[in-house]
Design a protein around this nucleic acid. Structure first.
Lengths: 117, 117
DNA sequence: CCAATAGTTAAGTGTATGCTTAACTATCAA
DNA sequence: TTGATAGTTAAGCATACACTTAACTATTGG
């Protein structure tokens, strides 16, 4: 596999970890400091900072430090492109099923059809 | 972290790999055999089978073998629950921004407002 | 029957991930 | 100025991941 990580790789990878989903969940309700993010999590601050780094690298989260506190917030764009990827797959799958359905209706217009002719 | 993998972990983890996304993309256009899935991929069949196992474990794909060919198809439910998780986060984030917007409008009804009173 | 096809399984390898501890830096408040 | 707060960074460790090769098992067309 290549070393270059496409945006979607990073976004889905980031969302694959339950700790990071909790962080995103928290941030979807509004900005938070690193310690606030860490508070419900049963791990060291250090680990949380590392998760945050993954979230930032994925583009899902942005943060800025003022004084000694770093304030984090979600970056909706990355979340949106992950969502879009999925919904596009769903769309193409649904289109296919529609065509299939249409074909079946056309071929066999009634349930238990009498043999034609 | 626990050893138990929540469904969302597995789904996002599965989607995090570009090879597996290609496979899902292919399957969203319709069922395919393992070799058909492997055809555009630059790796051994063995590796593809292993990716398929990940996709099946995540619930994103289902397959059945008849004769010597295994036919794979996507399982929309898992894809849908991943999509839903994201859209729910987005919803809560948008609600918050709406409230914030309303608050700002209420507090400061005009741009560059004249000082009240 | 037998060779080609389609897939499976096990073992090994290098790299990435999710943590921990520990030592460190900056900011704020008394 | 000093101690508490908030976060950062490096090193180490165990486990998980994405492959490969190689040996193997069915199925099927001729």
């Amino acid at each position: 596999m290549l070393n270059y990580q496409a945006p979607l790789d990073l976004a889905f990878q980031a969302l694959a970890d339950p700790t990071r989903r909790i962080m995103v969940e928290r941030l979807s309700q509004g900005p938070a400091s690193v310690s606030e993010l860490a508070q419900p999590l049963d791990m060291t601050l250090s680990a949380v900072v590392q998760h945050l780094a993954v979230l930032e690298a994925s583009g899902l989260v942005r943060s800025e430090k003022v004084g000694r506190v770093r304030t984090c917030r979600i970056e909706p764009k990355a979340l949106h492109s992950a969502e879009r990827w999925i919904s596009e797959r769903r769309a193409s799958w649904e289109r296919r099923l529609d065509r299939l359905g249409a074909f079946l209706v056309e071929t066999e217009p009634t349930i238990k059809p009498r043999r034609k002719k």
